[in-house]
Design a protein around this nucleic acid. Structure first.
Lengths: 110, 110
DNA sequence: TCCATATATCAATAGTTCATGATATATGGA
DNA sequence: TCCATATATCATGAACTATTGATATATGGA
Protein backbone atom coordinates (compact mmCIF):
# COMPACT_ATOMS: atom_id res chain seq x y z
CA UNK A 1 0.00 0.00 0.00
CA UNK A 2 1.33 3.46 -0.86
CA UNK A 3 0.40 6.66 0.90
CA UNK A 4 -1.85 7.96 -1.89
CA UNK A 5 -3.95 4.83 -1.70
CA UNK A 6 -4.17 5.07 2.08
CA UNK A 7 -5.33 8.70 1.82
CA UNK A 8 -8.00 7.65 -0.67
CA UNK A 9 -9.17 5.02 1.83
CA UNK A 10 -9.34 7.42 4.76
CA UNK A 11 -11.00 10.13 2.66
CA UNK A 12 -13.64 7.62 1.69
CA UNK A 13 -14.35 6.91 5.36
CA UNK A 14 -14.30 10.59 6.33
CA UNK A 15 -17.90 11.29 5.37
CA UNK A 16 -21.00 10.48 7.34
CA UNK A 17 -23.03 8.55 4.77
CA UNK A 18 -20.04 6.53 3.63
CA UNK A 19 -18.92 5.71 7.14
CA UNK A 20 -22.47 4.55 7.91
CA UNK A 21 -22.42 2.39 4.78
CA UNK A 22 -19.10 0.90 5.78
CA UNK A 23 -20.27 0.07 9.28
CA UNK A 24 -23.54 -1.35 7.97
CA UNK A 25 -21.58 -3.64 5.66
CA UNK A 26 -19.17 -4.61 8.44
CA UNK A 27 -22.23 -5.78 10.37
CA UNK A 28 -23.62 -7.51 7.27
CA UNK A 29 -20.42 -9.57 6.98
CA UNK A 30 -19.45 -11.47 3.87
CA UNK A 31 -23.02 -11.57 2.50
CA UNK A 32 -22.96 -7.83 1.93
CA UNK A 33 -26.08 -5.97 0.88
CA UNK A 34 -27.82 -4.79 -2.28
CA UNK A 35 -27.29 -1.15 -3.26
CA UNK A 36 -30.97 -0.29 -2.98
CA UNK A 37 -31.29 -1.92 0.43
CA UNK A 38 -28.29 0.08 1.66
CA UNK A 39 -29.92 3.30 0.46
CA UNK A 40 -33.22 2.36 2.12
CA UNK A 41 -31.57 1.31 5.36
CA UNK A 42 -29.82 4.66 5.68
CA UNK A 43 -32.58 6.86 4.21
CA UNK A 44 -30.35 8.28 1.49
CA UNK A 45 -31.44 9.14 -2.07
CA UNK A 46 -30.57 6.71 -4.80
CA UNK A 47 -28.10 8.81 -6.75
CA UNK A 48 -26.36 10.14 -3.67
CA UNK A 49 -25.92 6.59 -2.42
CA UNK A 50 -24.72 5.41 -5.81
CA UNK A 51 -21.97 7.99 -5.92
CA UNK A 52 -20.99 7.29 -2.32
CA UNK A 53 -20.86 3.57 -3.04
CA UNK A 54 -18.64 4.24 -6.01
CA UNK A 55 -16.28 6.32 -3.86
CA UNK A 56 -15.95 3.46 -1.37
CA UNK A 57 -15.67 0.94 -4.15
CA UNK A 58 -13.07 2.87 -6.16
CA UNK A 59 -11.08 3.37 -2.98
CA UNK A 60 -10.99 -0.40 -2.66
CA UNK A 61 -12.89 -0.63 0.62
CA UNK A 62 -15.85 -2.41 -0.99
CA UNK A 63 -16.28 -5.23 -3.46
CA UNK A 64 -19.32 -5.39 -5.71
CA UNK A 65 -21.01 -8.08 -7.71
CA UNK A 66 -23.89 -7.82 -10.12
CA UNK A 67 -26.89 -10.08 -9.53
CA UNK A 68 -29.31 -9.49 -12.34
CA UNK A 69 -30.66 -6.01 -11.97
CA UNK A 70 -29.16 -5.67 -8.50
CA UNK A 71 -25.63 -4.98 -7.32
CA UNK A 72 -24.38 -6.47 -4.10
CA UNK A 73 -21.73 -4.61 -2.12
CA UNK A 74 -19.55 -6.04 0.66
CA UNK A 75 -16.46 -5.08 2.64
CA UNK A 76 -13.11 -5.91 1.01
CA UNK A 77 -11.38 -7.28 4.10
CA UNK A 78 -8.14 -7.89 2.22
CA UNK A 79 -7.82 -4.21 1.42
CA UNK A 80 -8.88 -3.16 4.91
CA UNK A 81 -6.15 -5.37 6.28
CA UNK A 82 -3.55 -3.67 4.12
CA UNK A 83 -4.76 -0.25 5.18
CA UNK A 84 -4.51 -0.98 8.89
CA UNK A 85 -1.14 -2.67 8.48
CA UNK A 86 0.10 0.42 6.64
CA UNK A 87 -1.17 2.63 9.43
CA UNK A 88 0.53 0.56 12.14
CA UNK A 89 3.78 -0.22 10.28
CA UNK A 90 6.77 -0.68 12.62
CA UNK A 91 4.60 0.39 15.51
CA UNK A 92 5.92 1.18 18.97
CA UNK A 93 9.49 1.61 17.79
CA UNK A 94 9.80 -2.11 17.10
CA UNK A 95 9.32 -3.00 20.77
CA UNK A 96 7.23 -6.18 20.63
CA UNK A 97 5.82 -5.85 24.15
CA UNK A 98 4.72 -2.26 23.78
CA UNK A 99 3.41 -3.21 20.36
CA UNK A 100 1.37 -6.14 21.63
CA UNK A 101 -0.10 -4.00 24.39
CA UNK A 102 -1.13 -1.42 21.82
CA UNK A 103 -2.67 -4.05 19.56
CA UNK A 104 -4.59 -5.55 22.49
CA UNK A 105 -5.98 -2.13 23.22
CA UNK A 106 -6.90 -1.57 19.61
CA UNK A 107 -8.54 -4.89 18.85
CA UNK A 108 -11.25 -5.26 21.44
CA UNK A 109 -13.88 -5.80 18.77
CA UNK A 110 -15.92 -9.00 18.95
CA UNK B 1 -17.39 7.06 20.13
CA UNK B 2 -20.04 8.75 18.02
CA UNK B 3 -20.01 9.05 14.25
CA UNK B 4 -19.06 12.74 14.20
CA UNK B 5 -15.94 11.99 16.23
CA UNK B 6 -15.04 9.08 13.97
CA UNK B 7 -15.38 11.30 10.89
CA UNK B 8 -13.10 13.86 12.51
CA UNK B 9 -10.54 11.10 13.09
CA UNK B 10 -10.67 9.80 9.53
CA UNK B 11 -10.60 13.33 8.08
CA UNK B 12 -7.48 13.99 10.10
CA UNK B 13 -5.82 10.92 8.58
CA UNK B 14 -7.01 11.72 5.05
CA UNK B 15 -4.21 14.13 4.25
CA UNK B 16 -0.68 13.31 3.21
CA UNK B 17 1.31 15.33 5.73
CA UNK B 18 -0.90 14.30 8.62
CA UNK B 19 -0.85 10.64 7.66
CA UNK B 20 2.94 10.80 7.47
CA UNK B 21 3.04 12.42 10.91
CA UNK B 22 0.79 9.73 12.30
CA UNK B 23 2.91 6.93 10.87
CA UNK B 24 6.09 8.59 12.06
CA UNK B 25 4.68 8.78 15.59
CA UNK B 26 3.46 5.18 15.40
CA UNK B 27 7.07 4.23 14.69
CA UNK B 28 8.30 6.52 17.47
CA UNK B 29 6.12 4.68 19.99
CA UNK B 30 5.27 6.04 23.41
CA UNK B 31 8.26 8.45 23.47
CA UNK B 32 6.69 10.51 20.72
CA UNK B 33 8.60 13.36 19.08
CA UNK B 34 9.05 17.10 19.44
CA UNK B 35 7.01 19.29 17.07
CA UNK B 36 10.08 20.79 15.45
CA UNK B 37 11.71 17.40 14.91
CA UNK B 38 8.53 16.15 13.24
CA UNK B 39 8.54 19.14 10.88
CA UNK B 40 12.24 18.61 10.09
CA UNK B 41 11.84 14.87 9.58
CA UNK B 42 9.09 15.41 7.02
CA UNK B 43 10.47 18.59 5.42
CA UNK B 44 7.34 20.62 6.16
CA UNK B 45 7.24 24.32 7.12
CA UNK B 46 6.76 25.20 10.74
CA UNK B 47 3.32 26.78 10.57
CA UNK B 48 1.92 24.18 8.20
CA UNK B 49 3.11 21.45 10.55
CA UNK B 50 1.75 23.28 13.56
CA UNK B 51 -1.74 23.45 12.08
CA UNK B 52 -1.59 19.84 10.96
CA UNK B 53 -0.48 18.76 14.43
CA UNK B 54 -3.38 20.66 15.93
CA UNK B 55 -5.82 18.95 13.55
CA UNK B 56 -4.51 15.53 14.65
CA UNK B 57 -4.44 16.62 18.25
CA UNK B 58 -7.93 18.15 18.28
CA UNK B 59 -9.24 15.03 16.59
CA UNK B 60 -7.86 13.08 19.54
CA UNK B 61 -5.36 11.01 17.59
CA UNK B 62 -2.36 12.63 19.29
CA UNK B 63 -1.47 13.59 22.84
CA UNK B 64 0.85 16.49 23.53
CA UNK B 65 2.93 17.61 26.45
CA UNK B 66 4.93 20.78 26.90
CA UNK B 67 8.61 20.41 27.82
CA UNK B 68 9.95 23.89 28.34
CA UNK B 69 9.97 25.60 24.98
CA UNK B 70 9.24 22.33 23.18
CA UNK B 71 6.05 20.36 22.72
CA UNK B 72 6.17 16.59 22.50
CA UNK B 73 3.51 14.79 20.47
CA UNK B 74 2.66 11.10 20.62
CA UNK B 75 -0.08 8.73 19.44
CA UNK B 76 -3.13 8.47 21.69
CA UNK B 77 -3.53 4.68 21.52
CA UNK B 78 -6.64 4.77 23.70
CA UNK B 79 -8.46 6.90 21.17
CA UNK B 80 -7.14 4.89 18.24
CA UNK B 81 -8.51 1.79 19.91
CA UNK B 82 -11.95 3.35 20.20
CA UNK B 83 -11.88 4.43 16.57
CA UNK B 84 -11.06 0.98 15.25
CA UNK B 85 -13.57 -0.67 17.57
CA UNK B 86 -16.22 1.73 16.29
CA UNK B 87 -15.30 0.88 12.71
CA UNK B 88 -15.50 -2.88 13.32
CA UNK B 89 -18.52 -2.91 15.65
CA UNK B 90 -20.58 -6.12 15.40
CA UNK B 91 -18.39 -7.22 12.55
CA UNK B 92 -19.13 -10.22 10.35
CA UNK B 93 -22.76 -10.36 11.33
CA UNK B 94 -21.87 -11.56 14.83
CA UNK B 95 -20.31 -14.78 13.49
CA UNK B 96 -17.27 -15.30 15.76
CA UNK B 97 -15.35 -17.50 13.33
CA UNK B 98 -15.76 -15.22 10.36
CA UNK B 99 -14.96 -12.34 12.67
CA UNK B 100 -11.77 -13.89 13.98
CA UNK B 101 -10.61 -14.67 10.45
CA UNK B 102 -11.19 -11.06 9.48
CA UNK B 103 -9.31 -9.78 12.52
CA UNK B 104 -6.39 -12.12 11.80
CA UNK B 105 -6.23 -10.72 8.29
CA UNK B 106 -6.40 -7.18 9.57
CA UNK B 107 -3.85 -7.38 12.35
CA UNK B 108 -0.70 -8.63 10.71
CA UNK B 109 1.31 -5.71 12.04
CA UNK B 110 4.45 -6.47 14.03
C1' DT C 1 -40.09 -4.97 -28.67
C1' DC C 2 -41.77 -2.14 -24.87
C1' DC C 3 -41.95 -0.98 -20.08
C1' DA C 4 -40.56 -0.96 -15.26
C1' DT C 5 -36.96 -1.30 -12.05
C1' DA C 6 -32.08 -0.88 -10.41
C1' DT C 7 -28.12 1.63 -10.67
C1' DA C 8 -24.83 5.07 -12.68
C1' DT C 9 -23.41 9.52 -14.60
C1' DC C 10 -23.47 14.50 -15.44
C1' DA C 11 -23.44 19.58 -14.52
C1' DA C 12 -23.87 23.05 -11.28
C1' DT C 13 -23.86 25.19 -6.90
C1' DA C 14 -22.49 25.49 -2.10
C1' DG C 15 -19.53 24.31 1.31
C1' DT C 16 -15.00 22.72 3.03
C1' DT C 17 -10.05 22.35 3.27
C1' DC C 18 -5.16 23.39 2.25
C1' DA C 19 -0.73 25.90 2.22
C1' DT C 20 1.15 30.25 2.67
C1' DG C 21 2.89 34.71 4.54
C1' DA C 22 2.53 37.46 8.30
C1' DT C 23 2.16 37.84 12.97
C1' DA C 24 1.39 36.51 17.82
C1' DT C 25 2.43 33.94 22.06
C1' DA C 26 5.34 31.46 25.24
C1' DT C 27 9.55 29.95 27.27
C1' DG C 28 14.50 30.15 28.51
C1' DG C 29 18.78 32.42 28.82
C1' DA C 30 21.87 36.56 29.05
C1' DT D 1 14.39 43.25 30.95
C1' DC D 2 15.69 42.04 26.24
C1' DC D 3 16.47 38.69 22.73
C1' DA D 4 16.28 34.21 20.46
C1' DT D 5 13.88 30.08 19.79
C1' DA D 6 9.67 27.06 19.62
C1' DT D 7 5.13 26.87 18.54
C1' DA D 8 0.41 28.76 17.45
C1' DT D 9 -2.97 31.69 15.09
C1' DC D 10 -5.04 34.44 11.44
C1' DA D 11 -6.59 35.89 6.73
C1' DT D 12 -6.61 34.73 2.02
C1' DG D 13 -7.03 32.53 -2.36
C1' DA D 14 -6.90 28.09 -4.73
C1' DA D 15 -8.39 23.50 -4.89
C1' DC D 16 -11.36 19.95 -3.65
C1' DT D 17 -15.97 17.66 -2.23
C1' DA D 18 -20.97 16.82 -1.52
C1' DT D 19 -25.64 16.99 -2.77
C1' DT D 20 -29.11 17.71 -6.04
C1' DG D 21 -32.04 17.38 -10.21
C1' DA D 22 -31.94 15.54 -14.50
C1' DT D 23 -30.79 11.99 -17.38
C1' DA D 24 -28.56 7.74 -19.03
C1' DT D 25 -27.62 2.77 -18.93
C1' DA D 26 -28.64 -2.00 -17.96
C1' DT D 27 -31.43 -5.89 -16.88
C1' DG D 28 -35.68 -8.67 -16.62
C1' DG D 29 -40.32 -9.57 -17.70
C1' DA D 30 -44.63 -9.11 -20.50
Amino acid sequence: MDIKTAITHFSALAQETRLEVFRLLVKAGSDGMLAGDIADALGVRQNTMSSNLSVLSNAGLLQSQREGRFIRYSIDFENLSELLSFLMEDCCGGDPEACQAAIDKIMKCC
